[in-house]
């Protein structure tokens, strides 16, 4: 009996102590910044851009009536064949992110519907670190002002969501040396002064 009581006491006391420690000043992982909710922000709207492109609303074509959703993974060679489709190294299919029922909405892993204007809520399903950084300011790009309510660029504005990696492109011109002089870099074996 006494032994049982001891065990009971131990099993009650240990979790209590742990709870107190965790909430109190001895917390092991007491990260203030993480705990604080992110400062207010506004994400740039995607829908107007998509409308301009003529892709939105999706339900214009995908009405689940004449156009039934086809869950089979296949090569798109009729419509949307211009999409570079290598997000997640081809592991994904349209319906990984687009809702099969409500075609004007996106859907996350938990089945919650997400508007096109709030894609950052969806991307975080996998890219959770980037999402946290995005909300607090270490990922993404701020617009207009460094102060006040943050206005940030939506994920899909910088990343082509179907092929999110940035593509290599031409850099702006290399620096020139001062007029009358020629540049010489570590890899080049030219330079010095041009004498007239």
């Amino acid at each position: 009996m006494r032994q049982r009581l001891v065990w009971l006491a131990v099993s009650l006391v240990i979790p209590t102590v742990c709870l107190v420690l965790d909430a109190g000043p001895f917390a092991w992982n007491n990260d203030d910044t993480e705990a604080k909710s992110p400062p207010p922000f506004v994400v740039s709207k995607r829908v107007p851009v998509l409308e301009d492109n003529g892709y939105y609303p999706c339900s214009d074509c995908h009405d689940n009536d004449s156009q039934k959703s086809n869950p089979r993974m296949r090569k798109l060679d009729d419509e949307h064949d211009d999409l570079a489709f290598d997000h997640g190294k081809q592991r994904f299919w349209c319906l990984a992110c687009h809702d099969s029922e409500n075609r004007d909405m996106l859907v996350n892993r938990g089945g919650q519907l997400i508007a096109f204007d709030e894609s950052h809520l969806l991307c975080g399903d996998c890219h959770y670190q980037q999402q946290t950084d995005f909300m607090y300011g270490a990922h993404g790009k701020r617009l207009q002002s460094w102060t006040g309510v943050r206005q940030i660029v939506a994920c899909a504005e910088c990343h082509d969501v179907h092929s999110p990696n940035f593509k290599p492109r031409e850099a702006w011109q290399p620096p020139q040396a001062r007029t009358g002089l020629t540049a010489t870099s570590v890899h080049q074996d030219i330079g010095g002064v041009e004498h007239e």
């Binding site: 040396a177 002089l181 540049a183 010489t184 870099s185 570590v186 330079g191 010095g192 002064v193 004498h195």
Partner: peptide, 11 residues
Amino acid sequence: LGEVFGYLPTM
């Protein structure tokens, strides 16, 4: 910034 750049006095 680690750049090696020539210098020669001009005339």
